[in-house]
Amino acid sequence: MQLILHGKFITPLITKRTTFKIKGCNTKFSQPRRRIYSKIHSTKPMFPYALICYLGEFELSYSYSSKNRANKKIHELLRIKSIGRYSSEGLGKIQWIKGELHPSSTRSENKKQRNSRRVRIRKGLPHNLPTKIQQLIRYALLHDFVHTPRHKSKIYIEPLFDDGEFITLLRQHHDNSNNVLIQTFQKYDRIAASITRKIRSPRTTRYNWYSTQNIDFIELCRNIKEVVPNIWKLYKYIYESKALTCISEALEYGHTSLRNHLLIIANLIVQDFQQNRIEVNLCSE
């Protein structure tokens, strides 16, 4: 069951986002009005601060199991006069308007599925992935660790996998091929590269601008080889690896990291699979 409270910010609330939390409850502005609050220091010769803030009507939602809990929460929330920064100067003043109690079934029916194109980097891969998608993700996560005609392995050493055919496919990831796996991978690789490659900053080594210490590439290669059979373990290893964050994805772009590049490709594939956007050819082949 869900409690929905409607209110209004009379004076602006200093926040960069239109979604925030009040006492642990999710809140969003229904019709946000953006303002900029400037603050002057009369005693200092300095430029005024400019702070982004929003005001207008908002909607707060809280899911509860019993009516007692809902009543307690209403008491707790209606006590609030103002929230946020500079509330002592009169900012973030709240006016509560009305509330609604929704039984869970009707609320969940009305809830729409969000199909945003924004990439979310997951902590781990979902469990229910078909074998073809698993293969594509494995291909994506390993593609930069092999020598190709265009570049050497980005960790300098090539881990020797048991699957010989798979390595030959990995070595062809820059080529014009009729293979559907390679074609689909190339699409995601380009998208991921366009996301991360923003500022051109050339480097002569694989260490990027954020790296502070030397990396043991032999150990890194050995560790990757151990987790190759299981894509969930492989993803987790890349996610937690500190060494891969210090390696640049492209020599021309020294601010990028190999970890982010690999994770973005994997997450783009998972996101498209969950939203039924991935090409059917790959699954049917």
């Binding site: 308007i97 009305k98 109690l101």
Partner: peptide
């Protein structure tokens, strides 16, 4: 009914 109005 299901909802309430906050009166101050």
């Amino acid at each position: 009914g299901d909802g309430f109005i906050v009166k101050e």
